[in-house]
Design a protein around this nucleic acid. Sequence first.
DNA 1: ATGAAACTGAACTGGCCAGTTTATAATCGT
DNA 2: ACGATTATAAACTGGCCAGTTCAGTTTCAT
Lengths: 208, 208
Amino acid sequence: MDPATKTIIRTGRKFEQVLLGARKVFMADGFEGASVDDIAKAAGVSKATLYSYFPDKRLLFMEVVRSECLRQAEDAVELADFDASPQVALRFAGYAMVDIFTSDFSQRIFRVCVAESDRFPELGWEFYQSGPMVGRARLTEYLKQAVARGELKIDDFALAADQFVELCKADLFARMVFGINRDFTKAEKARVVEAAVDMFIARYGVAP
Amino acid sequence: MDPATKTIIRTGRKFEQVLLGARKVFMADGFEGASVDDIAKAAGVSKATLYSYFPDKRLLFMEVVRSECLRQAEDAVELADFDASPQVALRFAGYAMVDIFTSDFSQRIFRVCVAESDRFPELGWEFYQSGPMVGRARLTEYLKQAVARGELKIDDFALAADQFVELCKADLFARMVFGINRDFTKAEKARVVEAAVDMFIARYGVAP
DNA sequence: ATGAAACTGAACTGGCCAGTTTATAATCGT
DNA sequence: ACGATTATAAACTGGCCAGTTCAGTTTCAT
């Protein structure tokens, strides 16, 4: 009613509990599929308590995605080993990225974001900023150093980074989002990552 | 009730009409968001008629996706000019692919498939088979001919095709699915496609 | 023109769910 | 230990929607 009331109350004993339960249920069932009763139950909290923290289901959902994106961003920081040669660093980053986006959690959050970013425009943006963009920035930073060291030759850094990320998704990503496979063998991952590195070096490597 | 009844009746004057209305509403609102009343209204048909063709909403939805995938597959047949040089053929295919997956319709169907392929395992599979796989097969075919002509050197054809497809999505795809951009300028597309071709040739081209 | 098949519209059932309310109980600072 | 804050359980409101039913109308083949 009162627009000033439409804010999340972050203080209170069970705030975290609510968020945790919401996370669990939203990730499992999506926004529409999740019922507030289920969330309250999963959180071990009464519905009234839940509504005392979050004015409505939408804001609760947004908050879950926001907090999860922050977590994901922290994981992504490990991506690059800045001093290594391109072959080594890219291989490492490639395997790390594949592991991240094939993880059960990433699959779920991606699915939910894609599904709901029509109804929640700010949601897609938030995920994009704190997910893919973080990895890209990190990779770009590495590429710049490698170019400075004369190990690579690149004009459009952002594009190069995006290309490498994209190459690491070849085959795997499509099979994943369409539910053909839920997870992959080491060999399947290796096939893609090694080929991604080879291709990247072939294009941007400097002749020795 | 009777399991034999759980089949789609394809004969009847208004079958196509129903499918058309369903297509429109499902694409706009997704599976959960679309109400059968809306679909019947959009189709210019009574709800009873709709249910005389389709035993339930799920099967109607599946049928819409199936038929739309077939349409998409036919568009994709135009992708390759088999006799052209890699530079020319890949450029052409790249622009065509970008146009396809940035189209309003592809965006919608992708969104819906990703969202619902948890609840409808066979849906993701169907889309995968009649969408991405068709393009990949077509491209693989071209690559084999180019290799036979000595214009390229490739071991893993399927992977090479997937890599090229993936390269054409760099930057654009993420911005699209997360709703950052709904469409792109010629320059944005050119930046990605030209870079994709350059990279592919750098890796698989034969020295002249 | 006539009878069968297809279609209509509207009402109805049963179920689910977001959000509210209320009376009661647990928890906490002081 | 007491008053205020916070939490609870359960019932309730109002709304939406999938799927059914039915009495009556249109369409079409013969």
